[in-house]
Design a protein around this nucleic acid. Sequence first.
DNA 1: CTCAAATGTTTTTTT
DNA 2: AACATTTGAG
Length: 680
Amino acid sequence: MSGRPAAPGAGVDLTGLNDAQRAAVTAPSGFHLVVAGAGTGKTRTLVHRVAWLLEQGADPSGIVLLTFTRRAAREMLDRASRMVGPKAHRVQGGTFHAYASRVLRTLARDGFAERIGRSGEFTVMDRRDAEDLVGLVRNDLGVGAGGRRFPNKATLLKFISRQANAGGSLQDAVDAVNPRFLDDLDGIEAVARAYAARKQQADLVDYDDLLVLLRDLLRRDADARARVAGRCQHVLVDEYQDTNRVQGHIAALLATAHGDLMVVGDEAQSIYAFRGARVENILDFPKVFAGARVTKLEANYRSTQPVLDLANGVLESFSVGFDKRLYTELDHKGAERPMLVEVADVGQEADVVVANVLAMREAAIGLADQAVLFRAAFHSAVLESALTRAGIPFRKYGGLRFVEAAHIKDVLSLLRLVANPRDEVAWLRVLSWIQGIGPKTAGRIIDAALAPGGLSDADAFAGRAWHAELERLIDLLRVQRDLPLHRQVDAAVEYVRSGLDARYDDAWKRERDLTALPVLADRYDSLDAFLADVALDPPEAADAEADEEEDEQLTLSTVHSAKGLEWTGVQVLRLADGQFPSGYSLDDPDALEEERRLLYVAVTRAKRHLLLYQPRFVEGRGSFGVGPGCVLLEEVPGLDDRVQRMIGRAPAPPDGGGDGLPSDPAAQERLDQVLAWMDD
DNA sequence: CTCAAATGTTTTTTT
DNA sequence: AACATTTGAG
């Protein structure tokens, strides 16, 4: 960092920034790409940019800050407000999806409902809901009833989603996702059409609709564009490498009125191709918007040089990308090289990870400064039980979310019916709860509910075994309408709780979650706001247990969910073909390149201590080629100079202190047992 | 014909 | 934990 004084007259302190960061922060309006390598102060730069704009007199509500998660937006605006005061909180911020949802709702309530095809009270479906609706359509059309190879609902939704965010024809989408099903194109097209019609009829949108509806409106409707883009004096986009085509269009359209668009990202960290992210958005930005300014941030403030050496090795293995190399100006004396730890199997992997967690804690690296990362959420299962046995508290991110659990969806479906009685997907879920009602009967009842007049009582179904239950449900929904939010949630929770034992054999465990739900809902003042947030930014399971918050907890996370975060000590599990890289990507060069970017993300999370585990055997999973090697690592140039190879039994002492062995006698004993068993 | 229970298989990543 | 498939009850 240079010690240059702040620009004269600027109220925001810029002295802590390096030249490149300051150039980005104080740049004049225009199209601007900031290429920010991992740990180069990207967030810091964005925060200062927002503060600087405000200090220059920008209207906070004219600034739009689009981020990857709501948490990222909140953190940035908190930091900006510490620099320039509370007005920073009036900046428009959030994910593309949340922003689109807000804008579409406002426009729909303001005369644009017809053009959007939805009311201002539309319900947002998560992926599972969308799949369920596709499943309904699939059944109704009777496609694939006879022939067995017609795609299932999840695959169908992938085709539809691909077309939505890649553009082009449905045929192209099928070809890209799974060309095996090209023969069924007619049936797939029928499903896609019917799905679109059913969504509109039920006032539902899926994730893709939020983006596509907004993009199309901004593109085709000058009125809407004037209203929305007219308010966007300054548009800032974080994590631009993970935007898809539609998001790229929206960002550009928002900036059409005032011409100020700053996108920030790192093409080497593009890890959401499966969701339609296009690295090309960031790579081609300077070409697409001729005259765009480009600023590169390369000075790293996070990691030691040995960690950066490995990161640079991964960078060198990429076939595309901006020419860049991470370096640090700090002198980390005696910094150790990352360790590549060979373990026999996943059981030993878990034991050695536990041993190293404890060893690092001995060396004064608290649990909150440590993380264990993995490719897929279920990879941590063995480790989780080892941690529990060793008495190490942890928080897990990624994988199944709290609101995706079946019993939580039950409650939310009830609430959704209160908010939107046309919500077919919610009806299906709620009706299936009643014993004796399966898909067929549910379909008939839904038809009655969606017919003009709705379903005011269960009289039409008198005589059936489940008649009384249906009556109880309809009564509940009627009563619900007039209650305040917290009573609505309580009543829905009570209804679900009453049937919990009959429906789930682990009811006791789920009971706890149900108590957490009213607490989450308490933060909102309307049911609509609560439901929209739950669909667009679902709280993690860990958030729901906030009451037993512990400061000193180890973080377990998928690599995807770890994006943007950092820890002093990081351990990465399962670097073996079929695990990390995923078995799905082994025979596809583009997918493998994305796995390598994922490895790059994992490696660059570490400040100081980095351990990579390579199991020689992973049980099961016959369909995946699990090898002793890892093609990701094999392609890193000069790997042996960049890492220190270890055998799992001898965890190295971090920082030269301690002997690297666990201080907990029980853990030590278990480790000894495992090592002894391996010698047999 | 409809649904439920039991069984076996298969688990990527997420707005 | 969710899916498909099978089998049996009503």
